[in-house]
Each structure stands twice: as structure tokens, then as C-alpha cells.
């Protein structure tokens, strides 16, 4: 049945469809670079993996508004304030594109949001770090959005059509985010000694957490193999991390800043970094980062304080529904 609503599981998702033949046909489509669409048959594990990945990506965009939102009222000029406001607004938009893409896989928005608020779902570790100075707005735009771009560009070719198309939209919007961040850094670095020190301090604090954004090293990564086979992922965590470092080192040089890694050195054109503190990464992911509680508390508060709006909208829609019906019949 091709006319079914996209957000419903096929009624007759029979177990026999879950057989080896269907799985082989599915894999052949993936191998042929065909995009999988919401109504297509897919293995349950593919659906689960993508629902988890896309919803966690959405949560990250939403929670990611908080560290930057912290500085909107204290931006140093109207120009910076307008730009930061526009960026945070974009991140909200990214979250909404992504929730909608996740919902095509059959889990409702309400359920996905509940997974975040109840602490069952994860989001990017980077947003559990505090934003202590204005320079952090520069470091986040430059590095956090820079790392996000590295991650997201290959996702534009993800095998799941709705996710890939959402990523194309997101990537178009990210360039401004990174450039406004870099411009902030550049302005501080061309300023007085105190301002430059502030930029260096922000870089020092955000550098390692940014490298962790790409996830655990390939030797420890749990989900990678299947994700690569299904072409959800196109590059390994370490490959993306390496691309990010190669792109970022010259950018730091132009700023006149030093990356906080004494072991960083170039061998045959490739930058090698010192050891990453994976204990810290696991601690932050598990809820023990500097701001985990604060971030979730802020999301819960926003959700609770918005309840009356959702209720009022639903009540209003319900009140109008019968009236619309009679209008249509009369017409």
C-alpha cells in the first residue's frame, strides 16, 4: 500500500519480510547507492540505529543552543548579538529538521523528546562544557561548528533519504556559523593582550572536547561496522578527527594561537596529536560533565514551562475542528 501515512509502520510488517532474502535485497540497494525512503522495507536494526542516531543528533542541536544562549544578552555589540541570535535560531531549526527526519522512521516526536528529558537518550558531549567568556562564542563557532561540519558533510550522502536531505539543508547553514566564530576569534586576536589571552584560553578549554566530538577511537567504536556497511557512516571517527585537525591547524596559525597539545607534530603532511583523555569523554557522556545537570534541567524547565502553550494550541484546534467540518459541508 503506497498511500499510507509516512509516519506509520507498515501494517503488515510481517516477520517473514524480515528474512534473509529481503535483507539481501536491502543491502544490494545500499551497495548500489540507492537511497532508502520512509516507506521502504528496512531491517529493524537499521531503523533502530537511525532512529537513535538522528534523534541524538536532534537533541544535540537543541541542547547546543544553551551554551551560546548564555551569551546573547551579553554580546559586546549589536552586530555580534544579531549574529549570535541568528545562529542559535538556526541550531533550533536544525533540531526541528532532524526530529522530523527521525519521525519518518516511526517514533513520535513526543517519545523522542521524552527520551532526552528522562535522560535515556544521549547528546553530544561538547555541550556539557560551560561557556565562561565571550571568547567561547568564537571558539564554539570556529571549532564546534567546524567539527560538526566535518561530521555532517558525509551525512549528506547517508543511505537514508530523509536524513541525507535534512543534512544538505543543515550544511548550507553551517558555513555562517563557523565564519562568525572565526571572525570573533580574529577580532580578539588582533585586539589587546588581554583579549588575545581570552581567545587562547577559550581554545585551550575547547580543543580537546572538540576532538572528542568525533567519538571514541576506531579501535573502541561500538557502532561503526554496521553503520559503514549500511552507508549511514562514510568515514571512521579517527578519519574525520584527522580531517578536522588538518583543517584547523593552519587556521589557528593565522590567528596566532597555539593549540594546547605539545605533542602535535606534522609527519609527511599529516598532523599527529597527543593522547586524548577518553576517561573524560566517557565521564561526560555518562552524565558527569561540568554542565550535564544544568543542561537537562534547563531543557526540562523549558518543556514544563511550554506545557500550557501546547495545551492551549490543542484545545483551540479541538474547538475549531467541528466548526471547520460544518463549514466544509456547507461549502
Amino acid at each position: 500500500m503506497y498511500t499510507q501515512a509516512l509516519n506509520q509502520q507498515p501494517e503488515s510488517a510481517p516477520r517473514e519480510a524480515d528474512n534473509a532474502e529481503a535483507a539481501a535485497r536491502f543491502q544490494a540497494r545500499i551497495d548500489a547507492e540507492e537511497r532508502i525512503e520512509a516507506n521502504d522495507w528496512m531491517p529493524e536494526a537499521y531503523r533502530r540505529t537511525l532512529t537513535r542516531q538522528i534523534s541524538q543528533h536532534a537533541h544535540s542541536e537543541i541542547v547546543g543552543m544553551l551554551p551560546e544562549g548564555n551569551w546573547i544578552t551579553r554580546a559586546p555589540s549589536l552586530r555580534r548579538k544579531a549574529a549570535l541570535l541568528a545562529k542559535v535560531q538556526d541550531e533550533c531549526g536544525h533540531g526541528l529538521y532532524l526530529y522530523a527526519a527521525a519521525e519518518t522512521l516511526g517514533t513520535s516526536r513526543e517519545e523522542l523528546v521524552d527520551q532526552l528529558l528522562s535522560g535515556r537518550a544521549k547528546y553530544s558531549s561538547i555541550f556539557n562544557y560551560p561557556t565562561l567568556t565571550w571568547a567561547d562564542m568564537g571558539a564554539i563557532g570556529w571549532l564546534v561548528d567546524g567539527a560538526a561540519i566535518m561530521n555532517q558533510i558525509p551525512l549528506c550522502r547517508c543511505s537514508y533519504g530523509p536524513y541525507a536531505r535534512a543534512m544538505i539543508r543543515v550544511c548550507k547553514e553551517e558555513s555562517f556559523h563557523q565564519r562568525q566564530g572565526y571572525e570573533i576569534m580574529l577580532t580578539l586576536c588582533r585586539g589587546n593582550a588581554e583579549q588575545k589571552a581570552m581567545a587562547q584560553d577559550a581554545l585551550n578549554r575547547f580543543w580537546w572536547p572538540c576532538l572528542m566530538m568525533f567519538g571514541p577511537p576506531d579501535t573502541q567504536s561500538q557502532h561503526s561496522d554496521m553503520s559503514m556497511r549500511w552507508k549511514i557512516k562514510r568515514f571512521s571517527n579517527d578519519e574525520l578527527r584527522q580531517k578536522f585537525i588538518n583543517a584547523t591547524v593552519p587556521q589557528a596559525e593565522i590567528l596566532g594561537l597555539t593549540l594546547p597539545d605539545p605533542e602535535l607534530k606534522q609527519i609527511d603532511g599529516v598532523w599527529h596529536h597527543g593522547p586524548i583523555d577518553w576517561d573524560e569523554f566517557h565521564r561526560v557522556i555518562a552524565g558527569g560533565g561540568p554542565c550535564n545537570r544544568e543542561r537537562l534541567a534547563a531543557r526540562r524547565r523549558a518543556h514544563d514551562e511550554g506545557a500550557w502553550v501546547r495545551e492551549a494550541a490543542a484545545a483551540f484546534a479541538a474547538k475549531r475542528a467541528p466548526k471547520n467540518q460544518t463549514e466544509k459541508q456547507a461549502a
Binding site: 552586530r79 544579531a82 549574529a83 541568528a86 538556526d90 558555513s175 555562517f176 565564519r179 562568525q180 572565526y182 571572525e183 580574529l186 593552519p250 587556521q251 593565522i254
Partner: peptide, 15 residues
């Protein structure tokens, strides 16, 4: 709102 576009920001050519 030109600041929503990447070209609004001044980035040195060498970057």
C-alpha cells in the same frame, strides 16, 4: 538580516 549569510563575515583570504 544579511548576517545570516556566510559572506557577511570577513575572513582573510589566506584562511
Amino acid at each position: 538580516k544579511p548576517y545570516r549569510h556566510p559572506t557577511f563575515y570577513e575572513i582573510p583570504d589566506e584562511v
